[in-house]
Simulated scan of single mutants.
Amino acid sequence: MQLISALTLAMAGLASIVSANTCEEISNKDGSLYIIKADGVTDIPGTCGGLRDNLHGRACSIFPGQHKCGEVNGQLVMQFQTTYFCTHKNVQGAWWEATRNRFGDIQCKLSCQNREWVDECKK
C-alpha cells in the first residue's frame, strides 16, 4: 500500500512539472511567433543555446533580431519568430533534443486570440 502511495505522489509531481511548461504559437503575416516557458530549468543559457541550435537543425530559420531567450522570474522564456515551415513538431523535437524532457515536455498550441483568419481558429 505504501508503494502505491509513493508512486502516486511521484506521478503527481511529474504531472505538475509537465503542466507548468507552455509553448504558444501566434501566427502572423510573416510566419509564426513561438513563446516557450518552462519551470525548473537548471542551465537556462545552455538550454537556450541548445534550443536555438536544434531549431536550425530542423529547418526552423529564426528571423534575425527576433530571438530572445533567458530567465524571467525563475522561468526559462524563449521567444522567436520563424517561417510557417517551422511546425509544432519541429519545436517540440528541438526541445526534446535540448533537454531530453528532464524538465517536462512541451506541447505547442496555436493561439487563436485575434486570429480569425487562421483556418485552425475557425474550427
Rank of each mutant, 00 (worst) to 15 (best):
M1I: 04
D105N: 04
K109A: 13
I106P: 01
N114Q: 04
E71S: 14
A98Y: 10
K123Q: 08
K122W: 02
S16R: 06
G93W: 00
S19P: 02
H56A: 15
G57I: 11
K68H: 13
D39S: 12
G40R: 10
N90A: 14
C108A: 05
I4E: 12
Y84D: 08
S61M: 06
C112W: 02
C112Y: 02
A12E: 01
A59D: 15
D105L: 07
Q2L: 12
H67Q: 08
G46A: 14
G65C: 10
N21G: 08
R100S: 11
R100I: 02
E25C: 05
L7Y: 00
T42L: 11
I44K: 05
H56T: 07
C48V: 12
A94E: 07
G70M: 14
W96C: 01
H88F: 15
Y84V: 06
C48E: 04
A10W: 09
P64M: 06
S111C: 01
T83F: 13
S61H: 03
Y84R: 11
G40C: 08
G57K: 14
I44P: 01
Q75P: 02
E120Q: 08
M1T: 10
I62E: 03
Q113H: 05
R52T: 13
L7M: 10
P45E: 10
V18P: 00
M1V: 07
R58T: 01
K109N: 13
D30M: 12
S32V: 12
V18C: 00
N21W: 09
A10C: 12
R102H: 06
D53L: 15
S111G: 08
S27P: 07
L110F: 05
K123T: 02
L51I: 13
P45A: 12
G49H: 08
T8F: 11
Q75D: 09
G104R: 09
F103C: 01
S61G: 13
A59L: 15
S16T: 10
A12R: 00
A98K: 04
A98R: 05
G46P: 01
G74K: 14
T47K: 12
L55G: 06
A38F: 03
F63Q: 12
V18A: 05
Q92T: 06
T83M: 10
F103L: 07
T82S: 14
C23A: 07
Q92L: 01
G13D: 06
L14N: 04
K68R: 14
S19F: 07
Q113R: 15
K29W: 09
C86Q: 08
F85P: 00
G57L: 10
L14K: 03
G57Y: 13
F103S: 05
R52W: 04
T99W: 04
L51M: 15
K68D: 04
W117M: 03
G49A: 14
Q92G: 03
A6G: 06
K109S: 11
T47A: 12
D105A: 12
R52M: 11
L51F: 11
N21H: 09
D119F: 00
G13P: 00
N73W: 14
C121T: 02
G50F: 04
E116Y: 05
W96S: 04
G57E: 08
L55S: 05
R52Q: 13
